[in-house]
């Protein structure tokens, strides 16, 4: 449990950080909740670690024009407790509250988490359901992608060498919306065996908008558009969620088989929708 020797840089500006990262071999330290354990096991042996914690303003959380911007270095705890996030996109705040434990939430950041793209991470379900966008910058580029296009596969994102996540842009949830993040936590790791994030808008008794994001079940988080459509066409929750995850690859490990994960995704989608519906006005 001893890492290999490595060089450490602690840039004081974004520009300095991006110039350093032009060397594609360097690793970004953005909280270290995944990177540091990997280094201690020597599964990761970076030559240089670039710590973003001293880059100013990277943890800013602010809303303007109906868009909530969350800096990559905002911690899970900040996102869980931020009045802006709680008020404007409470689904993300609820998902953050399920991550790891208090110590992890105090150290881990949203940028670090999504760049790592663990298939069992909590955020991605909420981000795809929120139709969030991810802003990526490098020394030479600045681009913004839909979250759904950012997560490519297990531990695989659209980040190019030298690029970092700068911030997330999340369209504010309508205050009449209902939302819910339901999670089955692994009893050892606390990671999501399955996590389902949903948003609902009601029009009278009918559902006028539904968003369902699923994490943990497959190699990457996905939106179940078929189930969303069924709900928006008037199907009841049981019918709409019966096939959640159909056609998606499913993970398997010692704790839960692929079939069981798929089943959990459907069950918890229904439960999340039920709660979301009760919260919608």
């Amino acid at each position: 449990m001893i890492p290999q020797a490595f060089d450490y840089s602690s840039p004081r500006s974004l520009h300095e950080a991006l110039v350093l990262l032009e060397n594609g071999e360097h690793k970004v330290l953005a909280g270290g909740m995944s990177l540091v354990p990997m280094m201690k096991l020597r599964l990761a042996t970076p030559g240089r670690v670039v710590d973003l914690s001293r880059v100013p303003d990277l943890n800013r959380i602010a809303e303007s024009g109906g868009v909530v911007r969350i800096g990559a270095m905002a911690t899970h705890h900040e996102i869980e407790t931020s009045p802006v996030v709680r008020g404007q996109c409470p689904l993300l705040s609820e998902a953050a509250s399920h991550i790891g434990d208090v110590q992890v939430r105090n150290m881990g950041t949203i940028g670090g988490s999504i760049a790592h793209a663990d298939p069992a991470a909590d955020y991605p379900a909420a981000l795809v359901a929120l139709e969030a966008r991810v802003r990526l910058v490098s020394a030479h580029s600045d681009r913004t992608l839909d979250a759904a296009d950012f997560f490519l596969d297990a531990f695989t994102t659209a980040l190019a060498p030298g690029e970092i996540v700068l911030e997330l842009e999340i369209p504010a949830e309508d205050s009449s919306e209902g939302y819910r993040y339901e999670k089955v936590a692994h009893p050892a790791s606390g990671f999501a065996v399955v996590g389902v994030a949903v948003r609902i808008k009601k029009n009278g008794a009918a559902i006028s908008m539904a968003r369902i994001g699923v994490t943990g079940m497959g190699p990457r988080a996905f939106r179940d558009r078929a189930a969303e459509k069924l709900l928006e066409e008037g199907a009841d929750i049981a019918r709409a969620t019966a096939a959640v995850g159909a056609g998606q690859e499913a993970n398997a490990d010692l704790y839960a088989s692929a079939d069981y994960r798929r089943h959990l995704a459907a069950v918890h989608a229904a439960r999340a929708l039920t709660v979301a519906l009760s919260r919608a006005s």
Binding site: H186, P187, A188, S189, L254, Y255
Partner: peptide, 26 residues
């Protein structure tokens, strides 16, 4: 009763080699 189990594969590799897979009570 509920969580713990040391799991080996057929080759004798311990698969629950860390606390991320071996679930002790919390």
């Amino acid at each position: 009763a509920l969580w713990e189990q040391a799991v080996y594969d057929d080759s004798g590799q311990l698969l629950t080699g860390e606390l991320t897979d071996y679930a002790v009570p919390k």
